[in-house]
Every structure is written in structure tokens, then in C-alpha cells.
Nucleic acid binder design. Structure first.
Lengths: 121, 121
DNA sequence: TACCGTTGTATTTTTGAATACATAACGAAA
DNA sequence: TTTCGTTATGTATTCAAAAATACAACGGTA
């Protein structure tokens, strides 16, 4: 394979991409939701997690709701009212998904790095 | 790794993704442009290629212009006026990029299939 | 009962992107 | 010089996604 980088006007050529899980052909679990879950675990609140991500509460809530509607058991458990007004925690299944996604990302990163090398060679 | 598919409410779990080339961190060569180049080669015209793809001429032209602005030598060579009003052909470099992208897609497809198997296991 | 921060939901506003439309320029041929 | 289909470009319109705003409900605590 001839070097692709000779065709381009730059030395910085990169192969990049994105990855997600599909359930019945519908995208449902990419980098965004994962990060949101991690922040919910960290802060104990959808509201605060959304703020940390610079995302509106509405959008965060819709993400959570969508996730919960697809899995057998909820990934995010919410309580409303009470001492601190309520809050949210994530389930063991959510933690499994996060761990799986982290490993998946690592393998994907390796794939991309190999392809970038190949393209520059 | 525990089977992720046990968490979901469906038997059809798929790992999917998309891939592109970046030049100086800016995406510039994904599936869309490749298909457009192929149609331009086939029809000899940006206009007809756009029609085949159900894309407006304007958008197709902008894609072509963007591609040409990044590579050393044009990927698409256009002539205006003349007997048939003009037309476009693609360069050898474009053909190389198309071939490279085809092989890259094959390797990516294999990666996705392996990851899908792993997730379902 | 009044207060608090959060969840849950509806409505409106804004923004950006896609699309459609319109038109000039081109150059060979008749 | 008129005609032709294409390239090249600007502008207007439409549409959808995102963001902003507003507010009810909840349930502990003081």
C-alpha cells in the first residue's frame, strides 16, 4: 500500500472514529452516556452531573431515561424529595457497562493507532 | 468479562462505529466523500454524481472543493463550458484514496465483528 | 407548615444545518 | 450569436436539533 500521507498537504494524518453499542439497530451507549453515568456516581445527582458536563438537566434526564428503558433493570436509580431534595445512584449493571466500555475503548484506541501508523508509513 | 448482553432487554446487541481520516485534527474523508468520488468517476460529472446520491449539487460541490483544498493535487479535476457544458474527472490520487479507504473499511468491519461477538458471548 | 434541592415535564426561544431557489460564467458547436 | 449542460456562487427559506425557561411534585427536616 502506497503511503496515503504523500497525497495530503500535511504531515499530521490521523485515522479516527467513534464507537457505540446498538440494541436492535438503535444506538444507545456511546462515550456521552458513559461519562454521564460516571458523573452521576461521583455526584449522586443527575442535576450536578449535567452541570459538570455542561449539559442541560433536561438532556441528561432524557439520556438516563433512554438508558433505563432499554436495560432489564435500571442503570440509574432516582429518589425524589427528602432530606436533600432527592438524588440518583447507579446500579451494578451500570458499573459493569462502564467497565466494559472502558476496555472496549482501549482496544479501539489500539486499532486506531495501528491504522494511523499504517496510513503514515 | 461478564456478558454484556445479559444486561440488555434484547438478544440483538451490536458494536458499531464510524471511521474517518483527519488532517490536522479536522475530519475530511469519510464514507460520503468516497462514494461521491466513485460516482464522479462513473458519470464524469459532479452534477450527475450528486443526483445519483440524492444530494444537492451545491453540497456535492462543497465536498469536492473541501477535498481539493486539503490535498497537494486536486482529487477532482473540473472543466467548465465546452461541447457538453463541462464535466469532472478524478485523479490517480483520488483512486488511491478510494482503494485505501476500501481496505480500511474491511479491517474495521472485522474489528467490529470481533467486538460484537465478544459482547454477546 | 414552610423550606430545600432534586426529579420530572411542558412550553417557548434560539441556533444551526440542510434544503431550495436563483443566477452568472464557461466554451465548443451549430 | 444562440444554444446547451455543466461548473461555480450567493441568497432565502425551511426544518430540526439544541437550549433556555418555567414550574409542579416530592418527602424529609426544622
Amino acid at each position: 500500500m502506497k503511503a496515503i500521507s504523500t497525497i495530503l498537504d500535511t504531515a499530521v494524518l490521523t485515522v479516527n472514529g467513534s464507537l457505540w453499542l446498538e440494541s436492535n439497530g438503535k444506538r444507545f451507549f456511546g462515550p456521552g452516556p458513559v461519562e454521564l453515568l460516571e458523573y452521576i456516581e461521583l455526584t449522586g445527582s443527575i442535576n450536578q452531573a449535567a452541570k459538570k458536563m455542561g449539559m442541560s438537566y433536561k438532556k441528561a434526564w432524557e439520556l438516563v431515561n433512554n438508558l433505563n428503558s432499554i436495560t432489564h433493570r435500571p442503570l440509574v436509580v432516582t429518589t425524589t424529595g427528602g432530606e436533600k431534595g432527592g438524588g440518583s445512584t447507579i446500579s451494578d449493571e451500570a458499573r459493569e457497562l462502564i467497565a466494559y466500555h472502558r476496555d472496549l475503548r482501549i482496544r479501539f484506541k489500539k486499532f486506531l493507532e495501528e491504522e494511523t501508523l499504517r496510513a503514515r508509513k
